[in-house]
């Protein structure tokens, strides 16, 4: 079944800010096997010119899917989650994410397109500080295998 195109353009602000902690950055860095001291040690991060430990470039995946997740789980959208694989992903930074950041984000369904038998959905997420300073923009494209058949 094709996905519901009415969802294109819909935006989903996350209900609460996400607090970036040193503990979560460490957990994520360890999970990707990357023990760079700039992720783990505040002094090493400061020596490299950062206010606190830095989050790995792919870290925003931890918290940016909550808003869009709500949309993608909506039965009216028609997505079969079991058939979903990740198609494309991009992170565009205005500045690094640091431990101590409190970040808001809003996800928007940018595009839904059929390619062969598959459905492609692209979600853009703007990540900002509580003062609306843009920190990072993420683009997440998921593929529903067989969804357009």
């Amino acid at each position: 079944m094709a996905l519901n195109r009415d969802f294109i353009g819909r935006s989903y602000p996350a209900p609460e800010p996400y607090e970036v902690s040193r503990v979560k950055i460490r957990e994520f860095a360890e999970a990707i096997g990357d023990l760079n001291p700039i992720y783990l040690d505040r002094e090493a991060a400061r020596a490299a010119g950062h206010p606190d430990v830095v989050a790995p470039p792919t870290f925003p995946i931890v918290f940016t899917l909550t808003g869009a997740g709500e949309a993608l789980a909506d039965p009216d959208f028609g997505l079969n989650y079991a058939m979903v694989v990740h198609g494309e992903q991009r992170f565009e930074y205005q500045r690094p994410i640091y431990a101590g950041d409190e970040l808001r984000h809003t996800s928007t369904i940018l595009e839904i397109r059929s390619v062969g038998r598959n459905e492609f959905v692209t979600v853009k997420t703007d990540v900002t500080t509580l003062d609306d300073e843009l920190v990072c923009t993420t683009y997440n494209t998921i593929v529903e295998r067989g969804g357009a058949a």
Partner: peptide, 9 residues
């Protein structure tokens, strides 16, 4: 320096 990454896709 991981902070040097501006864009990654």
């Amino acid at each position: 320096d991981p902070g040097a990454v501006l864009d990654y896709g």
